[in-house]
Design a protein around this nucleic acid. Structure first.
Lengths: 214, 214
DNA sequence: TAGATTGTTAATCGATTAACAATC
DNA sequence: TAGATTGTTAATCGATTAACAATC
């Protein structure tokens, strides 16, 4: 399962397609969907839908379209979502806990349930041992070994900016391959580690640009 | 202050530059900064830095670079961050409260403090009247009038997916111009309203793609 | 078969990078 | 002045869109 050289822009749209298919399957009106309709619901041109999917194989039938259930299964496979992934969340502040809750809810209601937070970590000794959403808060000192021993490949960082780089390094040493980062800082990690950043401040500042100056 | 036609890609980098300048100013070692150095710290090529800034004027001196404080002030002005903007947050669940807290902390520590949450809204009657971070939770029914009467132009949505579109419409009717959306759904809004979406699920699913299949 | 839609190639569009004259 | 770096133009790169032969 190695399709290297697939552009990031393409990969970014796959979960979008999957979401549309999930919804179409849930409503259950149609068995088949055209690139046209899939594109419309995903907010993407139909040609781009076809081109994106074509990177991974031939999933459609000319004159008919794509079988919803089949494409859904294939996309899950492509995205590695046909397996359960263990996730650690570092930073048990209010944002971290909220994400743990949000995330777990979301994936529990999903039939696939492919991401599972198995560890919460925090630097604050007063938080240690507390249990949120059924998961115990552990000390940062155990992070690296926990990640290694449990073979965790994915992490979410919600610690303050000045601690984030350090945490990232611990995670990498433990063998993490993908990080979702909420700290407002650019993480420095080796090539083989993927980082997705969600930077609230940057987004808000960007939006301010579009406000008609008052 | 109308530079229409500036591409989104450019606007997206401006807050990044601002952040670098803030940091450089805080450390206070240098008065001047070159596009080279600014680019390095922002993770962007030096030519692109110059090109981005050139859209808005001539801020540098040949042979020398950009004056840190001056460029910082200019960027704030360009991004509309030289004014205080009132923000409403809709959805006082754990994510909403966490964001309110996070956000307020962040901008309070900043000397500019240009975004200020002035209203929290929730549909749950048991939450009404509660006070978080000094802000009272109000009923959704009052959202539109509150936004209009207080001349609020920016909103954050943290309600569940099935309520988000409805909330967005209320906000737009009240006169909102920019929305930061955390609900996992594409919001349908008029042309003149800007939406930035942060979709945790899409990001996580995207990251899963890069995991070496176990 | 006739109509529709895929998979794919070529054309277009937009964004980034390279290069350099202008000039501090 | 000599060295450095801007602002800007031209070249490159990559991503999206248009078009259409293949075919269900």
């Amino acid at each position: 399962m190695r399709w290297n050289k697939i552009s990031d822009a393409v990969v970014r749209r796959l979960p979008l397609y999957l979401r549309v298919l999930d919804e179409v399957a849930r409503v259950g009106e149609t068995q088949m969907i055209s690139s046209q309709e899939l594109g419309e619901k995903a907010g993407v041109g139909s040609a781009l839908v076809r081109k994106d999917l074509a990177w991974f194989g031939e999933f459609g039938k000319q004159g008919v379209g794509y079988e919803v259930e089949f494409l859904r299964t294939e996309l899950k496979r492509i995205l590695n979502l046909d397996k359960v992934h263990k996730v650690v969340l570092v930073g048990a502040g209010s944002l971290g806990i909220a994400l743990a809750r949000y995330n777990i809810r979301r994936f529990e209601s999903d039939d696939s349930f492919s991401l599972k937070i198995i560890g919460l970590f925090d630097q604050d000794p007063t938080k240690l041992g507390r249990i949120y959403e059924g998961i115990e808060v552990r000390p940062l000192a155990e992070l690296e070994s926990f990640v290694r021993e449990n073979n965790v490949k994915m992490a979410i960082i919600t610690v303050p900016a000045d601690a984030a780089q350090d945490v990232a390094m611990q995670l990498v040493k433990g063998g993490i391959e993908a990080i979702l980062n909420f700290a407002p800082i650019k993480l420095n990690v080796p090539e083989h580690v993927r980082v997705a950043s969600t930077d609230l401040t940057l987004e808000l500042q960007r939006l301010a640009y579009y406000l008609s100056g008052e």
